[in-house]
Design a protein around this nucleic acid. Structure first.
Lengths: 219, 219
DNA sequence: CTGGTTTGGTACTGGTGAGTACCAGATTCG
DNA sequence: CGAATCTGGTACTCACCAGTACCAAACCAG
């Protein structure tokens, strides 16, 4: 750290001299740095020193911007949820035919969630959720729980049309969610296998949707 | 901490006076305490002070018994793996008929892995695996990877007998693993729902096995 | 009983990190 | 321009923790 130690010391900040940031800009910069570092260091929340070193600003910025470490943690989780959740469920057209909907949903889950970025983000979320039931609940409701609700509704409609036969559409929806993830999420999260190729993705979601639809085909 | 501060000080240890433990006994006690604490504190590895306070002994016992914190961590992970993995796969009879085998496997996964204890243990493993690719790899190979190999073999035999039809038995095995877990593991790990009742377990594994077998039924 | 060996207990060291205080520039506004 | 305000930076305090050193007591062999 090339820093001039003039006792009692004001800075020097070598060359830089970048203009000072306003409250919101600094907040955003800190949040971005926290996100990057939590991925790089594979940790739920990096140290304040590390965040400041990357983002600039000072401890003060964190306390005025987030109210402390816990506040920053909350904001970080919110930020991550906002990044990974919408792509999973928001572009689903509930009125398309069942195979199309299921294929679409499975593809979202496999390609977005199991990409390098998706795994990084979801691991941070998981680590944090393990440690805090409250945050886990919030995240689940916005993400997986929301997806379950959506899919259950879709399956109920399909059952009403006679396209599938099942006792409990919520159970079936849970089955599909698991089927779509297969063993892949575990393998990816544990870094057992590298990111999936397009071919592998299509093979898996094809198999999953086939099994599910054949499995629930009315007799 | 009621301790007599006689400078340079030896103990007093109040009443206790329990006999001194040998190397192996102390090692086992430390390991047990570490396991309990990691569950209680929801942390990958508790602090040495906390472990010692519960197990007795001293820092010395940890260094002679495990070679330090990392060694204790390794031993703890080993201990946990040994507790949760065998019940999942070891009592599977590969020669039973397919539905029986699949039901048995699914029941193991759902009842053992999603019990209170199973979730606690698997969360510790996951937290540690997130942080250490090497440990993740070891654990995966012994656990889920082993299960995948087993099931893939079973499915290949069934296909050879003409009981199921599928292009790739490894992909199908991954599908089944996901199907058996469904959305339940996530819900349990995030503490969204309480432990499952027998009824819920049977409903889920029944649905999962039905979907899978119908889904792969030869045309 | 005696003397070496092993275990238990404590203190010390060095490092890290959160939270707070405060100073010195920078910015803004009158 | 000059004063009030805010941001950036540093230092300080306090707590926690791993690792090491060392002392005292328990244990064990002869």
């Amino acid at each position: 750290m090339p820093r001039d130690e003039q006792a009692g010391g004001r800075p020097g900040k070598a060359a830089a001299k970048a203009r000072r940031l306003g409250h919101d800009e600094r907040r955003a910069a800190l949040l971005r740095a926290a996100k990057e570092l939590s991925v790089e260091q594979d940790v739920a929340i990096p140290s304040l020193d590390a965040i400041i070193e990357r983002a600039g600003g000072s401890r003060r910025s964190i306390y005025t911007g987030f109210g402390g470490k816990e506040g920053l943690r909350d904001a970080l989780l919110e930020e991550i949820a906002e990044e990974i959740l919408p792509p999973l469920y928001d572009d689903i057209d509930q009125n398309a035919d069942l195979r199309t909907v299921l294929t679409h949903l499975a593809r979202n889950l496999v390609s977005a969630l199991m990409s390098e970025r998706g795994i990084d983000m979801s691991r941070i979320i998981m680590q944090d959720s393990f440690a805090s039931p409250a945050r886990a609940k919030t995240f689940y409701a916005r993400g997986p729980g929301n997806g379950m609700r959506l899919l259950t509704g879709i399956l109920e409609a399909a059952r009403a049309r006679g396209e599938i036969e099942t006792e409990d559409c919520a159970v079936a929806a849970g089955c599909f969610m698991g089927l779509a993830r297969g063993n892949l999420y575990l393998e990816r999260a544990l870094r057992i296998r590298p990111p999936l190729s397009e071919t592998e993705i299509e093979a898996h979601i094809g198999a999953a949707v086939d099994i599910f639809l054949n499995g629930l085909k009315p007799r």
